[in-house]
């Protein structure tokens, strides 16, 4: 089943990166963007704060003005003094147990 999973997963990852979803977001400016210009009048007098807030709620992948930052912040750090966690990456070090 593992091979089955692999074969199922790999197109998904390609799709995730290159799927249609992405071309809509930031590819060539789509029709919707032009429509926006005409309907902007209603939105024009809305307080900016509101718009900003709705932006913050959406994930950073959808935000066209997202901050340009190559660093990746993990949501939370695990406690690396935990014995199980230490053992889980023990073999990634030269000091690990290689007799297995």
């Amino acid at each position: 089943w593992r091979e089955h999973m692999l074969s199922r997963q790999s197109p998904n990852l390609n799709q995730l990166v290159y799927g249609k979803h992405s071309t809509n977001l930031d590819g060539v400016a789509s029709e919707d963007n032009h429509d926006d210009d005409s309907s902007d009048d209603e939105e024009f007098f809305k307080p900016k704060g509101q718009k900003k807030q709705s932006k913050n709620e959406s994930s950073s992948l959808d935000d066209i003005d997202a901050e340009d930052c190559s660093k990746f912040f993990k949501a939370e750090l695990r406690d690396w003094s935990n014995e199980d966690l230490i053992n889980s990456i023990r073999d990634r070090f030269v000091t690990g147990n290689w007799s297995k």
């Binding site: 790999s10 990166v17 992405s22």
Partner: peptide, 22 residues
């Protein structure tokens, strides 16, 4: 997320797609 966006940008400019295998 930054890496994924980079792959998309590369696709836009160079029309190169990576084959991604987990």
């Amino acid at each position: 997320p930054y890496g994924i966006e980079t792959l998309r940008n590369i696709n836009h400019f160079l029309s190169t797609r990576f084959t991604i295998k987990p």
